[in-house]
Simulated assay, not measured.
Amino acid sequence: MDSETAYAKVNLALHVRNRLPDGYHEIETIFAFLDQGDRLSVAPGEGIGLEIEGPFAEGLSATDNLVLRAADRLAALADGKRGARLRLDKRLPVASGIGGGSADAAATLRLLNRFWGLDLSSDALAEIAAPLGADVPACLVSHTCRGTGIGQDLTMITGDDLRDCTVLLVNPLVPVSTAAIFAAWDGIDRGPLAQGDILPAAQSGRNDLQQPAVTLVPILTDVLALLEECQPLIGRMSGSGATCFAVFDSMDAAERAEQHCRSAMGEIWTMRGRFR
């Protein structure tokens, strides 16, 4: 059975520059991806079907899902007669600011492009990915890159300085509405993201959605404080939350930080990994 990882996404920095008339926002961000995430597998079958399992499967629809939308779009571009039995192992929390459904949709496109032998180019897959959501094109690439526009204008990062770093994700198991967080943004443009090497650019950056999220989900204050006590290279919220992250220079440091957070908070979700 062929399979593909839907890599967890982290916004190392996220500058919101403008609210657009269509409801989207103009942003500048640095996307980075863990070597961990949801897992998608495929087997031959009639039509396109989806089964969902795993620790965060409860409440997810197997008939109204970005995985199926991605599969249907790819099948339509082929000959419309392709079949696949898809299985999603949902390991990432839902509505948590680390890719989730966007990463699952992107993994579907990579997996079925290979499984169906379509051999579509990266550019062709990116065109299919764009209508599925603002983060899907970046998740399709799943490597460190800068995103501008609504996050879909991507500039790949070569020779980035994150490859030796580890990252800890911490989520207080509180789902957060992306729309609600963006709606709570105060509309103030606090300036562009720095250019140059990724790590110092991210360190000097910010997440403009963090304060609105903290206001709506106060427990994030405790998560961020615990991570800061561990003296990370970077520590902040990812995307629209509620997952927070901390970047370290070793896996040992990430493990100690994980133990620190778990001993202090108890009911949380954590994941450790390396940047891809």
Results as ranks from 00 to 15, higher is better:
170 V>L: 11
69 R>Y: 00
41 S>F: 04
217 V>G: 06
117 G>T: 10
240 S>P: 09
133 G>F: 01
232 P>A: 06
167 V>N: 01
17 R>G: 06
167 V>G: 01
35 D>S: 06
177 S>I: 10
190 R>E: 04
105 A>I: 00
155 T>D: 10
219 I>V: 15
259 Q>E: 10
229 E>W: 05
86 L>D: 00
166 T>Y: 14
80 G>W: 07
218 P>N: 11
213 A>M: 10
160 D>T: 05
138 A>S: 13
249 D>Y: 03
253 A>L: 12
60 L>I: 13
234 I>E: 07
153 D>A: 14
116 W>T: 03
173 L>A: 10
91 R>E: 09
54 G>A: 09
73 R>F: 04
145 C>V: 07
171 N>G: 06
187 G>L: 11
171 N>C: 08
161 D>Q: 10
234 I>N: 04
19 R>H: 12
173 L>R: 15
94 V>H: 05
30 I>C: 05
146 R>G: 01
42 V>R: 02
147 G>N: 10
35 D>C: 02
218 P>M: 11
56 F>N: 00
237 M>C: 09
64 D>H: 13
11 N>K: 11
114 R>Q: 13
89 D>S: 12
233 L>R: 14
21 P>I: 06
207 N>M: 11
149 G>I: 04
205 G>D: 01
208 D>P: 11
164 D>W: 11
269 W>L: 03
4 E>A: 08
66 L>G: 00
154 L>C: 08
246 A>G: 15
50 L>N: 00
44 P>W: 02
88 L>F: 10
198 I>K: 05
111 L>M: 06
21 P>S: 12
110 R>W: 01
155 T>R: 15
268 I>D: 02
139 C>H: 04
163 R>Y: 05
178 T>I: 05
151 G>Q: 10
37 G>Y: 00
109 L>D: 02
104 D>W: 07
50 L>R: 02
266 G>S: 09
88 L>C: 09
56 F>D: 02
107 A>L: 08
14 L>Q: 00
253 A>Q: 14
6 A>R: 04
80 G>V: 12
266 G>C: 11
248 F>Q: 07
50 L>Q: 05
150 I>N: 00
264 A>K: 14
123 D>T: 14
44 P>V: 08
214 V>Y: 01
140 L>G: 03
274 R>A: 13
193 L>D: 06
219 I>H: 07
158 T>F: 10
123 D>W: 08
64 D>M: 06
26 E>A: 14
112 L>N: 05
132 L>S: 03
204 S>M: 11
66 L>Y: 01
127 E>H: 11
154 L>T: 06
43 A>S: 14
66 L>E: 00
170 V>P: 02
238 S>H: 10
7 Y>K: 12
255 E>Y: 06
206 R>H: 11
122 S>R: 15
175 P>L: 08
189 D>R: 11
195 Q>F: 01
28 E>D: 12
156 M>S: 12
210 Q>Y: 05
71 A>K: 01
245 F>A: 05
169 L>I: 12
44 P>E: 07
123 D>H: 13
